[in-house]
Simulated assay, not measured.
Amino acid sequence: MVERRQFCGAMQGKNLRYLDAQPSQEVRRARAGFVLLEHFSLPAFTQALDTIVTANLLRPAVFATKTFGLGTDEIVSDLGLVIRPDERLTPDAVCELDLLVICGGYRTPLRYNDELSLLLEVAVEQGVTLAGIWNGAWFLGRAGQLDGYRCAVHPEHRPALAEIARLTQVTSEAYVVDCDRLTASSPTGAFYMALEWIRSLHGKSLTDGIEDILAFEASRFRRIKPMLNLSISGPLREVINLMDVNLEEPLQMLDLCLYAGRSRRQIERLFKEQLGTSPQRYYMDLRITEARRLLQHTSLSIVEVSVACGFVSPSHFSKCYSAYFGHRPSKEIRLVK
């Protein structure tokens, strides 16, 4: 009998589903549980779930998944589809898991839930890895389970998380894996977050195979993101980054030119050619957008928001805000309960 040749590491994953290899020893099945919150992001949830389920196509039965609710009712996703979880989340159910994922969404209310916080404590005591999708990290942070960790959360909810989790490093990344805390801010982030968890258990060959199958889905969600990062040049990106980190005390045009090492004419040309606007208008758009996020997702006062976003007075802020959104800051809907 001719000995079967082995693929090299770089190609093994791509061919894993065709190799029919039998594991040399029995592998323990890892168990992942998904807590579905009201209006959870269905695309983000399914990306994580599909990644894990796809792993079972390559290595049968290495993972088990289950959905949970905090009650016994059906749950409406962000797309309006109604989901009935497999069961209610209980301490006994938590103890049977290896990974517990809190699935939030854009319209998921940011409300403290004492029952969920207690269940998260049980999970930590049992050595269960915790994860959050979209704004799921907010619930982990509100329960004190992200202290000392880095995390990812959807951009709309970064201010809210930063406010209630002072010991947490809230990043702008699509996903973060920090020891036994996994977080993702988008469907694509959820995909790669799940991949990292799988890789930690079964190695790169399996995740290479998963990526080979799901690459199209990943790129499809990636295209939902704004095309800004794909279309702007390095010098322009540098100027935009300077603006982004200087919202409270906006830089004058002269300072932007100095720090970026470009002339005013060069910077204005870059903005006009690549973004179709002026640097001043872009900077204002950036500041007013951040102001809306702060108003909606934190308990900061209007005066505090106006200061945080570099407006010279509350009246000037109110005038600018009304010009953009058609209503005064005082009329903005507050989403933090």
Rank of each mutant, 00 (worst) to 15 (best):
M1G: 15
E3W: 07
E3H: 08
R4T: 10
A10R: 15
M11W: 12
Q12A: 13
K14S: 14
K14T: 09
N15R: 13
N15A: 14
R17L: 12
Y18E: 10
L19R: 12
D20W: 05
D20S: 11
A21L: 15
Q22C: 01
S24E: 13
Q25T: 08
R28L: 08
R28S: 12
A30D: 08
R31V: 14
L36R: 02
L37K: 01
E38T: 03
H39L: 00
A44Q: 04
Q47K: 09
T51Y: 07
T51N: 09
T54C: 14
L58W: 08
P60L: 04
A61E: 13
V62G: 02
F63D: 09
A64I: 03
K66P: 02
K66A: 13
G71Y: 07
T72C: 04
I75D: 01
D78T: 00
D78I: 00
G80C: 02
I83H: 12
R84G: 02
R84N: 08
R88Y: 06
T90N: 09
A93T: 13
V94C: 10
C95S: 15
V101P: 07
I102Y: 05
C103N: 08
R107N: 01
R111C: 12
Y112V: 15
D114Y: 06
L116H: 07
S117V: 06
S117A: 15
A123M: 10
Q126S: 14
A131R: 08
G132F: 04
I133D: 00
I133Q: 01
W134F: 05
N135C: 03
G136D: 03
A137Y: 02
A137E: 06
A137S: 15
W138C: 02
G141M: 08
R142I: 01
A143R: 07
G144F: 08
G144V: 09
R150A: 13
V153N: 06
H154R: 05
P155M: 05
A160K: 05
A160Y: 06
I164M: 11
A165G: 11
V170Y: 06
E173Y: 12
A174G: 08
Y175W: 14
R181P: 06
T183H: 05
T183R: 05
S185R: 08
P187I: 01
P187A: 06
G189Q: 12
F191M: 14
F191E: 05
F191K: 02
A194S: 15
E196G: 10
L206F: 06
D208S: 15
I213G: 05
I213L: 14
I224H: 10
I224D: 12
M227Y: 11
S233K: 08
P235D: 11
P235C: 13
E238T: 14
V239F: 02
D244F: 04
P250A: 13
Q252P: 00
M253P: 00
L258N: 05
L258C: 01
F271V: 09
F271G: 07
K272Q: 13
Q274Y: 03
L275H: 02
G276I: 04
T277K: 06
S278W: 06
Y283H: 12
L286A: 06
R287W: 02
I288W: 01
L294D: 01
Q296D: 03
Q296Y: 05
H297S: 07
T298N: 06
S299I: 04
C309L: 05
G310D: 07
F311H: 04
S318Y: 00
K319H: 11
C320G: 01
A323Y: 04
F325E: 02
F325A: 03
G326C: 08
H327L: 09
P329G: 03
S330R: 08
